[in-house]
Computed example of a mutant assay.
Amino acid sequence: MNLEEVLNFRRSVRRYDKNKPIDPEKVKHCLELATLAPNSSNMQLWEFYQITNPGLMAKVSEACLGQSAASTASEIVVFVTRQDLYKKRAKFVLDFEEGNIRRNSPKERQEKRIRDRKLYYGKLMPFIYARFFGLLGFFRVILARTISLFRPMMLEVSECDMRVTVNKSCALAAQTFMIAMANEGYDTCPLEGFDSRRMKKLLKLPHGAGINMVIPCGIRDGNKGIWGERGRVPFDEIYHRI
C-alpha cells in the first residue's frame, strides 16, 4: 500500500478476530518505527509496553473498562509518558549531540554549537521539565511573560503545559505506530477510556509516569469491529489558506 492507501485502511477497530494472530516481532518493529516520530526537543520522554501475556492482557482489558477492542485484541500496546526521566534523557541527547556535532559540523563552529547544546540540554531542559507542586511552573510562567514584553517568547511553560507537551510527543509516536501497523495489514484502536491508576499498577510504573494511550492490536473481525462509514467534518469547514 502507498501512504494514502495505508491512511484509508487504518480505522479504529473495536473487535478483532481471535483466530487470526499477529506476529509479535512485527509489532515490535512497528514500535521501533514509532521512535522516529518527531518529539519536543528530541527528549523522547516515552516508553512503550507491548503486552502479549494472556493473563496480563485480561487485567489490562478490565482496566480499559471491558471495552471489546481490548478484550478481543491479540496484543495490547501501552504508550507511557516519562516526564520524570527528563534529566536522564537530556543527558542522553546532550552526549549524542556532542558526538554528532564533532562528526558533522565544520570545525570552526563545533565549540560554539557544543556550548549551545550544553546550555540547552544541561540547563534549560532540566529547568523547563522540573516539577515541584506547581511552584516551579508558576515561576516559569512569570519569567516567560516578563521576557515576552520585550521579545517573542514561548508562554506555555507551566507544569501543566509541560505535561501537555510530553503527551503531545507521545501521541505522535502512537500515531506513527498505528500507521506502521496499518502498513503491515494490522489493525489498532487508540483508547483513552481506562483506569490510569490500575493501569500504572499493572505495569509497575513509578508515580512520575503517565498513561498516554492504550492501543489494542489485531486483525479486524470482518465488519464487526468497524462502526460503519468514516465520518469527517467537511474539509472546507476546517481548511484555511491565508
Results as ranks from 00 to 15, higher is better:
Gly66Trp: 08
Gly66Pro: 04
Gly66Lys: 06
Gln67Lys: 01
Gln67Arg: 01
Ser68His: 04
Ser68Asn: 07
Ala69Asn: 01
Ser71Ile: 02
Ser71Tyr: 00
Ser71Leu: 04
Thr72Arg: 05
Thr72Cys: 08
Ser74Gly: 07
Ser74Lys: 05
Ser74Thr: 08
Glu75Thr: 13
Glu75Phe: 10
Ile76Gly: 04
Ile76Pro: 00
Val77Ser: 02
Val77Tyr: 01
Val78Asp: 00
Val78Cys: 02
Val78Thr: 03
Val78Gln: 00
Val78Met: 03
Phe79Asp: 00
Phe79Glu: 00
Val80Gly: 07
Val80Gln: 08
Val80Trp: 09
Thr81Cys: 05
Arg82Trp: 04
Arg82Glu: 02
Gln83Ser: 14
Gln83Asn: 14
Gln83Thr: 09
Asp84Thr: 09
Asp84Val: 13
Leu85His: 10
Leu85Pro: 02
Leu85Asn: 03
Lys88Gly: 09
Lys88Met: 12
Lys88Cys: 08
Lys88Ile: 11
Lys88Thr: 15
Lys91Phe: 11
Lys91Ile: 10
Lys91Ser: 15
Lys91Val: 12
Phe92Ser: 11
Phe92Val: 13
Phe92Asn: 13
Val93Phe: 13
Val93Ser: 11
Val93Ala: 14
Asp95Pro: 04
Phe96Ala: 05
Phe96Thr: 10
Glu97Ile: 12
Glu97Arg: 11
Glu98His: 12
Glu98Arg: 15
Glu98Asn: 10
Asn100Pro: 05
Ile101Trp: 01
Ile101Gly: 00
Ile101Phe: 02
Ile101Asp: 04
Ile101Ser: 02
Arg102Gln: 15
Arg103His: 08
Asn104Val: 05
Ser105Glu: 12
Ser105Arg: 11
Ser105Leu: 12
Ser105Tyr: 14
Pro106Met: 10
Pro106Phe: 12
Pro106Leu: 11
Pro106Ile: 10
Arg109Val: 10
Gln110Glu: 00
Gln110Asn: 00
Glu111Ser: 02
Glu111Gln: 01
Glu111Trp: 00
Lys112Gln: 14
Lys112Cys: 09
Arg113Ser: 14
Ile114His: 01
Ile114Leu: 01
Arg115Ser: 05
Arg115Tyr: 01
Arg117Asn: 08
Arg117Glu: 07
Arg117Leu: 04
Lys118Ile: 10
Lys118Ser: 12
Tyr121Lys: 07
Gly122Asp: 12
Gly122Lys: 14
Gly122Arg: 14
Gly122Thr: 13
